[in-house]
Design a protein around this nucleic acid. Structure first.
Length: 614
DNA sequence: TACTCACAG
DNA sequence: GGCTGTGAGTA
């Protein structure tokens, strides 16, 4: 049943609404963030690769341990703790997909049709990263700001797109004249426009909702409603284009959205209105569930605050002021964070471009499989190949911002201790050259290590673990146009806010201080604005116009050309995605897969298990 | 630069 | 629970 509106004086000001349209919308009082995670991601990837259906119970394995369990396999009581053997005993028809692997001595990974052994193989997570990037492309098409939290999770800032919808759907917002930033917003209307309703599961608010259903009181509730519709639509697009199901949480801040996304799995979403935050946190979670509060930190908190097992969030909220938390925890940063976390008020930035800081390739060795320098050197192509491959994909993803590592480090773990050594390398643009250098330096570092053990009573071998790391990434080339974009974009956004307010009939005297952070390259900051220009200005463009877009002919202000071209790029990508997608449930044919691996990846679709389990 | 720690999935 | 990955702190 559709929610009812019970209007009351709004708590929110025009400032809050306008901030929702800016590039720091996650800090607005009306902010809304979605957390989307792909259900049993590795299992879904393997299911598609093997041409199986969602109903086929499947596990993704690495050696003989299970790293992901499809939802249909969970029905048999299989979980990640099971060994492959016990999983197979629980489910007769269980399908098994092993991760792709590197073979010792080779620099590219592939899917193989036998059970690989850790003795001469290393796991490759590359296929999952590739699928992850496809999903990210869609997210980036649909909202102005996306933060990739991990290979299968992202945060989406839905503020901008909800702002747009608010203006479209509620004339009372669009037609208000002579408002200043400090005026309160009007009450919400008594009736919602036709067709508006929450999508997904809405957590109840005991104080305001009643037996007849959900009650909307203020604009933040409507923001959540619109966000739920938008998030649902984005998730359906992912499913249509790529065939992945997802779970999603929608809330005021990242931590709330993150907790919410886990509540209704798989393939559903959960909405936390601000009025429901307390009920949501208290009935479902302990303070240890917050992202970033690990075993160590929670141990300290428990000890210093004497937190009881039950109702730990309520306990912290009700018994300590922020000052008391600082006093007890002796860690002002943690105190502030905890104070805000338990109230659902911990507003964190959504980082769109997470600049890569390091990149590593590791492997643990078993027994005496690496018992000499030669054994280790034989493995080197795998580590180097892994890293170079990932650098290649990084370049492809951001062709106008090429990054290279300054240092190469090797880490070795023997049974006697851990050792590491690093050296600087030239920042070659050419990855073939860089590959040579990294191989050479890594080999040199390993040999240096080995020689220091020559006359030592302890031995480096058999080696327990090895890792090759690239660190201190620096930008070595960024296109001139991007630089221009960066320098002009701050002004752009100020103008953006100005023009918004003109459309709102703003009196510019009380213009708010909208903090403007330094921009991210290539990001579609003014996406919506640009889009509406494309739609309305197309015909006015002349072929003589030096500021005409070469692709659509629209007249585009010089400083917006980059953004505008990004938009074209995004649309092209979308087209590409749509044509790449098969209408039936066939596995995706990934044009990016190395030809060798692709051939091997094609397994018989009628096969119920990989051959080695027959 | 070398090493350790914390956290996450 | 083993494995893989990332970032921060410290001397």
């Amino acid at each position: 049943m559709a929610p009812r509106c019970v209007p009351q004086c709004s708590k929110f000001k025009w400032r809050d609404l306008v901030e929702l349209s800016g590039d720091r919308s996650e800090f607005s009082q009306l902010s809304v963030v979605a957390h989307i995670d792909v259900n049993a991601f590795f299992a879904q990837v393997e299911q598609l690769r093997l041409g199986l259906s969602k109903e086929d119970p499947l596990v993704c394995v690495q050696w003989s341990s299970i790293i992901a369990v499809s939802y249909s396999a969970r029905k048999y009581g299989i979980n990640r703790m099971d060994t492959l053997e016990s999983a197979l005993s629980k489910c007769e028809g269980l399908k098994v997909g092993h991760t792709a692997v590197f073979k010792k001595g080779q620099s590219d990974w592939s899917y193989i049709d036998y059970l690989p052994s850790p003795k001469d193989h290393k796991v490759s997570l590359d296929p999952y990263r590739r699928e992850s990037r496809k999903i990210m492309r869609i997210f980036k098409l649909r909202c102005s700001k996306v933060e990739k939290a991990s290979v299968d999770e992202s945060f989406l800032d839905l503020g901008n797109v909800v702002f747009q919808k608010l203006l479209e759907l509620f004339p009372v917002l669009k037609n208000s004249l002579d408002k200043s930033f400090d005026d309160y917003l009007p009450e919400i209307p008594e009736e919602l426009p036709e067709g508006l309703d929450f999508k997904g599961e809405v957590i109840r608010c005991p104080e305001t909702d009643d037996q007849d259903g959900l009650v909307l009181q203020d604009w933040d509730d409507i923001v959540m409603l619109l966000a739920s519709m938008e998030a649902h639509d984005i998730r359906k697009q992912i499913e249509k284009a790529l065939d992945y199901t997802t779970s999603c949480g929608i809330g005021r801040v990242k931590t709330i959205a993150k907790l919410a996304s886990g509540l209704h799995k798989p393939d559903n979403q959960t909405i936390i209105r601000n009025c429901a935050i307390d009920n949501f946190l208290n009935t479902h979670f302990k303070f240890t569930d917050f992202w970033g509060i690990g075993p160590k930190t929670s141990g300290i908190i428990k000890q210093r605050l004497l937190v009881p097992e039950e109702d730990s969030i309520g306990y912290i909220k009700e018994n300590f002021t922020q000052e008391e938390l600082e006093l007890k925890l002796k860690d002002p940063q943690l105190a502030t964070r905890l104070y805000q976390l338990v109230r659902g008020l911990y507003q964190e930035a959504i980082n769109t471009r997470i600049d890569i800081k390091s990149m590593g390739s590791n492997k643990n060795f078993r027994g005496k499989s690496v018992n000499s320098v030669k054994d280790l050197i034989d493995w080197l192509p795998v580590f180097v190949g892994d890293l170079i491959q990932r650098l290649t994909e990084l370049d492809e993803e951001q062709p106008n911002c090429i990054r290279r590592p300054k240092t190469v480090a090797v880490h070795l773990w023997s049974w006697n201790g851990a050792y590491s050594k690093q050296c600087t390398v030239p920042k070659f643009m050419d990855l073939f050259k860089l590959k040579e250098v990294i191989s050479h330096e890594a080999e040199h570092l390993i040999k240096t290590f080995a020689s220091t053990f020559d006359n030592s009573p302890v031995s480096l071998f058999p080696l327990r673990s090895f890792s090759l790391n690239l660190t201190s990434f620096e930008v070595i080339s960024s296109k001139e146009s991007i630089d221009k974009f960066v320098s002009s974009s701050k002004r752009n956004r100020e103008e953006h806010i100005d023009s918004l307010f003109k459309s709102l009939g703003e009196n510019t005297k009380s213009k708010p201080k909208v903090e403007i952070e330094e921009p991210k390259n290539g990001n579609i900051t003014t996406f919506l604005k640009t889009r509406s220009q494309v739609e309305t200005v197309t015909i006015a463009a002349s072929s003589e116009d030096p500021q005409a877009c070469p692709q659509c002919g629209s007249h585009i202000p010089e400083e917006e050309m980059v953004t505008h071209k990004d938009w074209h790029y995004a649309m092209e990508l979308q087209k590409q995605l749509e044509t790449e997608t098969q209408p039936n449930n066939q596995p995706l044919t990934d044009v990016n897969y190395p030809p060798t691996s692709r051939k091997k990846a094609k397994l018989d679709k009628n096969q119920t298990r990989l051959p080695f389990f027959k």
